[in-house]
Simulated scan of single mutants.
Amino acid sequence: MADEVTVPLLPCSSIDDVEAFYLVLGFRTTYKQRKPNPHVVVERDAIGLHFFELPGFDPAQSYGSCLVVTSDVAGLHRAFAAGMRAAYGRVLVSGIPRMTRPRARKNADGVTGFSVVDPGGNWIRVVNREAGSDAAVGPMRTALANAVVQADSRGRAEQGARILDTALKRPDAADDPVALIEVLVYRAELATVLGDGATADDLLRRVRDVVLTPEQRDSAADALENAADLVQPGSSPSASGG
């Protein structure tokens, strides 16, 4: 048969919290029940997710995960980010819930993707349907690719931060300034994830000091947008990118 559909059934501590979060991302509730077991279904276009409630469940200990395969990773991320900005005033990059940015995954043949970690601690991994990009070139991009594997794919932010710190301690005059921007911004994001606001602010100030040509600024646009999202309320806007 050719009409089979696989639907993930994921745990959470509160179906109400999960439902509210996915409504922010542009989903709609298509089913909800309290008895005999709390259960909610949310859908957005062809994406359908089912959640069941477990009393006492700890989202931080969740192993729940599923893949969403799409031909428009960037568009879906923009839509989710817009919903977060409208509801929370910013894109959530730390804690639970949170969302990473689209990046090529070295451990997935370079396929681009991002992850949403919902209030149930479930990792919704959005991946590109198309083949991955070429391998990273240069020490900065190599470090970035390795850090993404640790922090974005495996959730090991500390390890990703260590990889980037090592690269940033060995600057080279030949470093691509766009790659340097991407490394600095990603390291600032990981500092935010790790609750180190002072380091994040310092890294964003370093982003401001990188001199970019107009063409390089265009290439770094996604990273600079991420930097703007990372600026904390009350901080000076420090991530204009030269």
Results as ranks from 00 to 15, higher is better:
228 A>T: 01
231 V>E: 00
114 F>I: 14
81 A>Q: 06
215 E>G: 04
234 G>M: 01
213 T>W: 01
77 H>C: 10
214 P>D: 02
16 D>H: 02
160 G>D: 06
157 A>K: 09
17 D>C: 09
83 G>W: 05
225 E>Q: 01
19 E>P: 01
163 I>A: 06
22 Y>I: 10
138 G>L: 05
2 A>F: 07
45 D>H: 13
210 V>G: 06
146 N>V: 15
223 A>L: 07
124 I>D: 09
225 E>H: 00
34 R>V: 06
113 G>M: 12
8 P>K: 00
185 V>A: 05
140 M>A: 12
242 G>I: 07
216 Q>N: 10
14 S>R: 03
169 K>A: 14
38 P>M: 02
129 R>S: 13
183 V>R: 03
159 Q>Y: 10
5 V>I: 09
80 F>N: 06
227 A>T: 01
232 Q>H: 01
207 V>P: 00
221 A>R: 03
224 L>F: 02
15 I>S: 00
131 A>W: 08
9 L>E: 08
85 R>S: 00
56 G>R: 05
238 S>H: 13
184 L>W: 05
52 F>V: 08
210 V>S: 08
73 V>E: 02
160 G>K: 09
52 F>I: 07
163 I>F: 06
171 P>A: 00
195 G>S: 01
3 D>P: 07
88 Y>T: 06
185 V>G: 09
190 L>N: 05
10 L>P: 10
100 T>R: 12
228 A>N: 02
149 V>E: 12
100 T>N: 14
106 K>I: 05
86 A>R: 04
20 A>Y: 04
126 V>I: 13
133 S>T: 15
77 H>D: 09
118 D>N: 13
13 S>A: 07
221 A>T: 06
168 L>M: 02
197 G>S: 09
155 G>H: 14
97 P>V: 04
152 D>Y: 07
